[in-house]
Design a protein around this nucleic acid. Structure first.
Lengths: 203, 203
DNA sequence: GACAGCATACCAACCAGTTGGTATGCTAAG
DNA sequence: CTTAGCATACCAACTGGTTGGTATGCTGTC
């Protein structure tokens, strides 16, 4: 399986940008990490910003494939599926910080004002992933008769919490704090759907 | 009131770094924004990273003074004070994105791996601010007999949510989504302390 | 005249992006 | 089957400009 330079660069970008940030990652850094030359870089991407957009799209594809295959969709109850998703996200927080943090969350903080194309690609990634939760959340809202929240808003909130959890983990230098924060997200969902701790205790 | 170059540089750093990110902000950018020369910069800060640490500390000082003077401490009930804090944070989300977002949350994403000094300064700022909420949260937990959460963890969670809300606002290019996310944080606190909507309805 | 507080001038390293060129594979005419 | 014609994929060397940082000089105050 011989990978082309384009794929190698995109894969290298995911790790390098998450570890160093976008601005601090030079084109030479990416070429060295991917084992290709600068000529190859600019053959496949017309600029560094264009690679960032492609990397965000690549991130969307790889993560959505990974979440689509994940086991949290199995439960019969929609709320159980949402809670299983959160549990799944919590279990992903493992190893070194660049290994589990979010590429687009990192990138958009640096690029939101400098490049509309990068910002849009990051938003597509975040909002697109949040949208995969909406059906389950909508079904749970319906089933458990919750009002005051919309599926779109609540699905985005899961992402906001997870992004914030990553920032705290980076600042503290400790993944544990991210796990703790995601625990609060789980508790919020349980409280919101009136399922406090025990399973399926609806009146 | 004649400001020294050091103060002008620190003030310039708060706005410029929030708008452009840390790596993308050059020393020349900061000097131009502050109206000082490069000689003055390196007279007061021995490196760009040293300025970042000083800027984070400066951020801690200015924000803590601002929060100390804020009106949300007035309520008699500790839970009311916590909820008033969240409402206060929500009302701060106004104007352009760099105007209300967090310097240290932005900076730590870029620098957490490259500089321990910057990371520590950012963590001091976040954890220090969170700590100002702990007494009220502890009193509310006691008064409303909530278990399963600690004051330290819940106060950090407020910051995680707010940081995540900022990321979403940057990605969408819309402060409104941040306000919406902070609304979920408020609802979580209300549910956690069994005060759903109406005021002081404890059995 | 010592020293804090700057300004000017400069540097080596690094930056994104360009250049001219080569290797390889596909396609279709002969 | 051969081969001309061309596009894709890649490479090493280079460029103009920017980077963080330094060395030195000036100027007002104690």
């Amino acid at each position: 399986m011989k990978l082309g330079a384009r794929t190698k660069l995109l894969d290298a970008a995911l790790g390098t940008i998450r570890a160093q940030g976008y601005s601090a990652t030079s084109v030479d850094d990416l070429c060295a990490a991917a084992g290709v030359t600068k000529g190859a870089f600019f053959h496949h991407f017309k600029s560094k910003d264009a690679l960032a957009v492609a990397a965000a799209d690549h991130w969307s594809e790889t993560t959505s494939a990974m979440f689509a295959d994940a086991p949290y969709h199995a439960a019969d109850d929609p709320l159980d599926r949402v809670l299983a998703y959160i549990e799944f996200r919590k279990n992903l927080v493992q190893g070194e910080i660049p290994a589990f943090t979010c590429l687009v969350g990192t990138m958009v903080q640096e690029a939101y004002a400098a490049s509309d194309a990068i910002r849009d690609a990051c938003w597509r990634s975040i909002a697109g992933h949040a949208a995969t939760l909406e059906a389950d959340i909508a079904a749970a809202i319906e089933k458990y008769d919750v009002d005051g929240v919309t599926p779109a808003s609540l699905s985005l909130y899961t992402q906001a919490t997870i992004q914030g959890a990553f920032i705290l983990a980076k600042a503290k230098g400790d993944p544990g704090v991210a796990i703790d924060m995601i625990g609060h997200l789980k508790r919020y969902i349980e409280l919101l759907f009136k399922r406090q701790g025990r399973k399926a205790s609806i009146p």
